[in-house]
């Protein structure tokens, strides 16, 4: 790791101030992606701004028909939260399947979505449930937030503060993990609720999370796994790596989508 100046601001304003005064500053949520990257010397920020001490970023609340999760909330808290478990069990289950227990104790929802790894679980949750991302500047619909592999709509001085999930009628998540890294080879969130019928896929797309409109149309008619029979995604634009070819991923999207719908009950 190259050395850097470390900041641990107590407020978003302090964080923005530390970031703006740095020549090449980097925000850190739980650090579960950033620190391994720095250890491999694949980045050399002048300053690291640790957001973990900002109390306004933590916490899970019910607001109207939505569950609002502070950006600094770690995966284990989401998985174990009673509101999430009762209102959006698919989200709790998704959080419970991220990484491993130690990663879940540190990794945060804000850090995960700001990083937008194409194989991360949370992007599927946000898009698949029609969530809204709240930042220090604005609110962004999940559909507009994830703009490509490791790319988001966030500006350089924009910090995710919370994610608001509308409570769905039903939702399910099914993941086929990479056996080594436990990232999603394919993960599908399917839901029906205030945001309509949604099917969001992570792990498979080269550009990160994407929706499958053909599946959404099929499920809008009847929200059941059988409705997805014969509906497939083309392999052309899907990821290929050691663990799964694009063709296999395309097949898994179909299988996982059915399982997600089944899990939604």
């Amino acid at each position: 790791m190259y050395d850097f100046n470390y900041h641990r601001p107590k407020s978003i304003d302090e964080a923005l101030s530390a970031l703006s005064s740095a020549s090449d500053g980097k925000l850190m949520g739980g650090g579960q992606t950033l620190l391994p990257t720095l250890k491999q010397r694949l980045a050399s920020p002048s300053d690291v701004v640790d957001l973990s001490a900002i109390s306004e970023l933590s916490g899970i609340t019910e607001q109207g028909g939505a569950i609002v999760i502070g950006a600094g909330t770690c995966h284990a808290e989401v998985a174990g939260n009673a509101s999430v478990q009762s209102k959006i069990p698919a989200l709790a289950a998704l959080a419970e399947g991220i990484g491993d227990p130690q990663v879940r104790n540190r990794g945060t929802i804000g850090g995960s979505i700001a990083n937008n790894d194409p194989a991360a679980d949370y992007p599927a949750a946000l898009v698949g449930l029609g969530a809204t991302v709240k930042t220090n500047m604005r609110e962004v619909a999940a559909d507009d937030f994830f703009t490509g592999m490791f790319e988001t709509a966030l500006a350089d001085d924009e910090i995710v503060t919370a994610v608001s999930f509308p409570v769905p009628e039903k939702a399910g998540y099914a993941k086929f993990p990479n056996p080594a890294s436990r990232y999603a080879i394919v993960g599908v969130m399917a839901s029906k609720g205030p945001a309509g019928v949604r099917v969001a896929v992570t792990g498979a797309g080269q550009g990160g999370v994407f929706r499958v409109s053909a599946m959404e149309t099929a499920l809008a008619g009847h929200f059941s796994a059988e409705a997805l029979t014969g509906v497939s995604v083309p392999a052309d634009d899907l990821n290929a790596d050691l663990h799964a070819s694009a063709e296999y991923r395309a097949h898994l999207v179909g299988v996982m989508a059915k399982r997600a719908v089944d899990a939604a009950g």
């Binding site: 641990r8 640790d50 227990p101 990663v103 104790n105 540190r106």
Partner: peptide, 14 residues
Amino acid sequence: KSIKACTTLAVQAE
């Protein structure tokens, strides 16, 4: 809470 000490900075444990 259990965490991985190789993926945590010493200063984070202040």
